[in-house]
Amino acid sequence: MSELVFFFNQVVIAGAVLGSVYALGAIGVTLIFGILRFAHFAHGDMMTMGAFVAFILAVGAGALGIQTPIATGFIVLPLAMVIAAVLALGIDKGFYAPLRRRGARPVTLLIASIGVTLMIQGLLRLFFGTGTYSFFDTQPKTIFRIDTSAIGSTRPLVVTEPQIMLILLTIVVVVALHFFLTRSRLGKAMRAMADNPDLAQVSGINTQLVVRVTWIIAGSLACAAGTMLALDVTLKPDLAFNILLPIFAAAIVGGLGQAYGAIAGGFLIGFAETLAVFNWTLVLRPLRDVLPEWLELPNNLALVPTEYKLTVAFVILVITLLVRPTGIFKGAST
């Protein structure tokens, strides 16, 4: 039974955590693609930027002597999300909107997003250096160890406070997004614009407003995802650049422009990655005595070595693009 609990710790919890981060990021990527029709490569850096905003707020709160029962990072998150949304709007106004007004092709906007990436990266490193930071320097990270001896296991079920918060937050976001897109006037207008931008304009839908709402959602969710990732691991300037590929893979696998697809894609990639790097030997160990001599279990029986975790998202991405280019949920056709 210990093996089962180990599997749960290593795959189910880790996969759900990773999947949540990917899903939150991919929602932003997919919405921006649906509305503005370009691949927003600076999204990973928006996540990092949001995490640093939350970090500054948390440090500031700590400096003011504010003590909180749960990690300060969560308490300041709503405010950080608001600031990140404002920053996202500013970035759009400063760098993307002028190009759109000129009627630039989507690929020009894609290149412009490289410029934004470089500027955010440069500023972050300028102010924070290249080192790592932790939200838990001044307060402990609560770790829950659930005793599982009742089912005959010697290992506890381990889950940390940030992991629980992250999964809860993702559930809240998914439900809220669902109601926003299917019930609210603006949410429906967003879907309408993703579906047929010309007709949305002709219907009198305020497309500028929809674009602003898109950036607000994408920016605040990027901040939430980045902060959660930073709370779970550590905070550093290249935090999110490394997960840009899985996030885009999630958005593409789910079908670009499809919010639900991005969520499904995020969890698919998250679980696929954790399963691929999982060391099966530890679970199969009880079988050691049963197995014949020639089938000795090696010490490390992972499908993919951890260093090559990235290949998992990539392989899923390429297979999707080759077999079903519009994604598992049919994506935007342009």
Partner: peptide, 25 residues
């Protein structure tokens, strides 16, 4: 109001949602 010749419905949205979009303003 204007009804374009082609692509004049939101294909992924329900009929009722299409009508709601007409009333957006």
């Amino acid at each position: 109001s204007f009804v374009p010749q082609e692509k004049n419905v939101f294909t992924t949205m329900s009929v009722e949602e299409n009508l709601e979009m007409g009333a957006f303003v």
